[in-house]
Each structure stands twice: as C-alpha cells, then as structure tokens.
Design a protein around this nucleic acid. Structure first.
Lengths: 193, 193, 193, 193
DNA sequence: CATGAATGAGAGTTCATTCAT
DNA sequence: GATGAATGAACTCTCATTCAT
C-alpha cells in the first residue's frame, strides 16, 4: 500500500529513506482523516517524526502528497470498472456499483472531495483523478448507452464532478447520504419511462 | 444568536443607520459577485466606504451578512414553491422548475454553494436556508409523491444539500453544467420504469 | 524627523497610530544600525513593541520602510547641493563636499549602500534615491563642467552608483576609507594635466 | 583554515578523486556564471553529478570553492603586475592596465565582487585575494609613486577594495560602467595639477 | 570516500477580529 | 455608533549543513 512511487522511479537505496516515505504516507493519511486534507504541513511532519523539509522533498506540492496517499485506492477504483462491467448483470448495474465505490472512497476521506475541484490549487490531484477515472467512467457510460439503458448525452467528466460534489461534506452529517444521492443521479440517467 | 437580522427585527429609527446598512448590503453583494462570498472583510468595508468595525457591528458573523445579502432571493425562491405547484401541469414538473430556480440562485452567486455546508462556520446561513427552503421543498416532494410521480423516501433536507453540492464550483467550468445534473437528480426520483 | 508621510497624506487622527509610526521608525532605525537594513521584520516589530502586521500596514515593502526611515537625510542631502554650489569657491569644490555628505550618509547607515543596487528588490528605495539625488548631482557636474574644471562625459547616475558602491561595507573596516576613495574618484574627473 | 586547497597541498594520489575535483570546479564555474557565486550548493552538486556531501568534503566553505574556481585567474592577474610594469611605458600606465585586468575579472564573474567584503562570511576568499593581489598592487603603486606620477599616500588594500566595490552589480546595468569608474579612480591618484 | 536524505531555523505574508478613540 | 489601527496566530517554503548508510 505505501510505496507511493509513480512508474519506474528509482526506489531509494537507503533504508531509512524508504521507511520515512512510508512513515510520511501513514502519518499524512492519519492526519488527513482527522484534520482533512488541508492539514498544516507541520502537523503531518510532526506526526511522522520528520522535519517539514522532508515532506517537501518527497512531495513538492500538497497535491502530490494527497495523490500519493490515495493512489492505490484511486487505482483500485479504476480497475474495478472493467471488472464490474464483465460481472454484469447489466452495464447500468455496473455503473451503479462503480459509482458506489467511488462515493465510498471520497466520503471516507475527510475533505477529499472538496479539493477535487479544478482551480482549487490541487491541479496534480485533479489531473490524476481525471486521468484514471474519467476513461473508466466513460467506458461504463458507453456500455450502458450502447445497451440502450441510459441516455447517451452525458459526459463522463460531468458525471464524475457531479458525484464528487455530492460527496462534499458527506461525513459528519447523518441526515445527508451521499451514496443515496449519487444513486439517484445515476438513476436519473435512465431513459424516462 | 446575534439576532442575525432575522424575522421581526426592530428597524433602526435613525436614517443614517439604515442607509449605512443598505450601503453595506449593496457593497457586499457587489464584492460577492466578483470575489465570492469568502472575500476579505476589508474589501467589503472599503467598497461600502465604512470601517470594518461597522460591518462587525451589523453582522457579527459573515454568515449573517450573507444571509442579509441574499435574503430576498431566498425568500423569492421559497415563495415560488407553492406558486409553481399551483401553476404547473404536475407536481413533478413544479419540482423540476423549482430546483432550477434554486440552482440558478446558487450558481450565479460566486461560491455561495460551498458555504452552505453545515460546520463550515456559516451556521446562520445554513440555518436560514433550511428554515426557508426545506419546508417548501418538502411540500413539493410530498405533492409529487402523493401524485404517485416519485418515490416517497427522500428527505427534503437531503435533496436540498445534494442540489446545493452539485452547484459548488459550477461557475468557471464550462464542462460542468450544474443545472443539468440537478435535473438528472430530480429525474432519478421518479419511480423506476 | 519622524513623520515619514509623503506629500499630503492624511495624518492619522488617532494618537496611538501616530505614536506608533514614530515608534516604528525609531525602532527600525535602531535595528538598522545594529543589524543592517536587511534585519528581519519581526525584529523590528518586537523592538517597536508592535505586531508585524502593523509594519506591513504602514510599509508594505521593506523599501518603503527604509525610505521612510532615511527620507529626511536624503532630502537634506539633496537640498545641500544647490547651497554648496552657491557657497563654494568653485563648482568642483562644491561637488567634493556634496559627495562627502553623501558618503557620510551611506556609511553611517549600516548596509544601506548595498541595497541601493537596482534589481536588489528595493525598487522603491532605488527610485527614491535616483529621483532625489541624481538631478542634484547632475547640476553639480554640469556646473563644474561648465566651469571647465572637469570632463563633461560622466553621467550623474554612473557617478552616484560608483560612490554608492564605494560605500559598501565601509563601516567596520578601519583599513578602508570610503570617503577618501570617493574623493579620489571626484579628483579623477578633473582634466588630465 | 580548512586548508582551502591553498599553496602546496598534496595533490590526491587517486585519479578518480582528482577527476572528481576537476569536475566539481568545472560545474561550479558553470553555475557561477549563470547564477552567481551565491548559487545554491545543490545546484552545483547536481551539475557536477555528485552529492552535496562531496562538495563539503572538498570545500568546507563556499569561499574555498570560489577560491579554487578562480584561482588561476587570480594568479594570472597577480603575475601580470610585474610584467606590465616591465612593459612600460610608465608605472602609472601599468597600474591602469592592471586595474583594468582586475575589473574585467570581477565583472565577468557574476556576483564575485560582492563577496570580496571582509565579514561577508567569505574569509578564505578575502584572504586569498589579499595575499595574492595586494602585494602586486603595492608594487605598482610604489613604482608610480617613486616615479612621481601619483601621490604616495594610498594603501594598496584600500585601492583594491575600492575597485572591487566599484565592480559590484556592474553586469546587468548598461548605465553603469565599472571599468570607467575604476579608471577615474586611478586617474584621481595623479598629483593635482 | 561518496551520497543525498533529513533537518529545522527562519523569513515573508495574510487576514479575522478586537478595541481605543 | 463608527472607525480603522493594531494584533498575532497561522501557514508556506527555502536551503545550508549534518550524518547515517
């Protein structure tokens, strides 16, 4: 879960460095849960028992850190798309389930949804989400549209952002159930009877 | 708390005080349009030609100010509910139109949607929206449900927040159409075919 | 000595504010003497017994602060030019004496000379010096050239910068006498025998 | 102090070590040209393809590094003194030419002049310049004074520092010609007519 | 010997909020 | 009542220097 290195990046030769990176990711994850992804850099550094410089070395941008922390989960979500499609019973069902997964991910990460906005200063993060998930979402939408289950005029990007938005502030408010609303949104894609 | 200029507040007997308040509201509205509702207090004070202290006197909380600025529009939105219900061909249509109104309101006010969250430190604002709009929304939902057009298991509060969330960041991103997504959400309320 | 307000700026109505600005200038002057004009903002604030914000309010830029602190002395130097010209036995003598004045000013202000450079991030300061002193220097040079005492091909700006440079680090080194060197520079302007 | 690679230092017996050092000097020279002699250590290390630790090993102090980089040129300058004196036509002409050489050296090395100050934290550098050049300058001054061309009361150290100062910030400002001013300074040494 | 990860002091800057006048 | 000066916590980011590997 915690290497966080993208692609073929040379893994550090130093044991402590590697441990540190893992440390960092753990600490950041922990702090993010409590304080949200806007938590002060120092907080995370303190929690990880490292200096702030170390964080900046590994993750020049806050977005880089967030991406690293949640990367595996985003990837898992991306990979789930084709699988759900294969499992059936229908593309629309697959879409429903996949959106559920996405919502779960966002809601359990305190404040993550809020920084998914473009121009919120988290470009790397935004880009990563888009790169990974929009194609998958598009695939699911195409399949469902191709099967005649849903209307064909919705862009995956728009849907992702809509669902993302629905997840903002979804923790900590028992009267608000983001998963439910996301499901309604997906239901709304069906052709009118 | 802090009276918030809500309900039957004794209007100031002094002319200049009233003028000042109006000034303030105009200025705030103008600044909100450009900078969003998070604009620095000083900006608004400067625009109104008053000191920051004056703002704090009239509106102890930023939420109080926002409420005051948009009160008329919220009220108009609230009042539109029954009227649309009376007019429309059907309750569901009325609901669609009303949601449209609400979305328009939120989207045209830069950043307003984002501060509708509970626990965002804008409690007065949140409370006001709830007080005014949730009952109206509930009325529309009940009517539509009573007419057998939609499912009966959605709470007005949840729907309002969902729509509100969908409007976050809706300006400034041409690929994202909040009104469209809100419409899908409402469509999703219909009974499955 | 210490109002530091340029032109017809409305002097603060509040007593404490005025006192504060004076305070600030005194404190800054004191700190500048010890630490040089690059002293940390916090240092100055502490010395003045105010918060850092107060400094930023009054002097958005460090250069603004420096200008304010030394303004009277620059002005005095500027005003001395014509007077010396009127007094002196000859324009060249006036020039010598004036340069002396300038050198004294720079040398007694720890580190001031160094930030006179263009592109050192002290544009306001640089501009102020130029605006005030270059014309005066030009007047003296012209007079001396007109009297046939010196060569006519030296720009006042170049001379000012040269003298300014000569003053860098002139305090704290007993083996280096900036005044002397500046005098040599001026002597070098004379026509070769 | 720290040996600084000065004088008769035992040249490393190991080929790779020597190559490394040469590497370092090349890299530092290249970086100095672009970023000036205050360039971040990391920059130089990266350019040389070594770790920062290696730099610190070879050159404990930044001044040590600068000295090493420019040593040959300083030496060349030192050696030029006697030669120019021998070439004639007069000691004062030799002095002029030699100062020209020195100015050229300083000006073409971005930011070098500024760190020549004593107490700028570049003691090694300052010492090296003094050791090498002050005697040469003294020789030229003595010769010119002996020939009755110039006044006899100027210390070589003072002259060197003056010229050095004149060179500060001389690149990047077309209105300022350090060589010219240095020439004026030297001209000023002549006996008054 | 070389490496480069880690450190952490330190500087700048912003703005909500208070309170003397 | 109105004003706006003052406050200072809070945050980001940089880089010289050390030292484990």
């Amino acid at each position: 879960m915690h290497d966080g290195d993208q692609g073929a990046e040379p893994v550090s030769r130093r044991k402590d460095a590697r441990r540190n990176k893992a440390n960092l990711l753990d600490a950041a994850a922990a702090v993010f849960v409590v304080q949200g992804v806007d938590a002060p850099v120092r907080e995370i550094a303190a929690r990880a028992g490292v200096g702030v410089g170390t964080i900046y070395r590994h993750f020049p941008t806050r977005a880089d850190l967030i991406v690293a922390v949640y990367r595996h989960q985003v990837d898992a979500c991306a990979e789930a798309g084709p699988r759900l499609l294969a499992e059936g019973p229908s593309p629309h069902t697959a879409l429903e389930r996949w959106i559920d997964l996405f919502v779960d991910f966002l809601v359990t990460k305190h404040g993550l949804a809020a920084v998914l906005q473009p121009d919120a200063g988290f470009d790397t993060l935004h880009a990563y989400f888009l790169d990974r998930l929009v194609p998958v979402c598009g695939q699911l939408l195409d399949a469902a549209a191709g099967a005649g289950e849903i209307r064909a005029d919705i862009e995956p990007y728009a849907l992702m952002r809509g669902v993302g938005n629905l997840c903002i502030g979804a923790d900590s408010d028992p009267r608000y159930d983001a998963r439910r609303l996301a499901a309604l949104l997906v239901a709304g894609l069906r052709h009118a009877a």
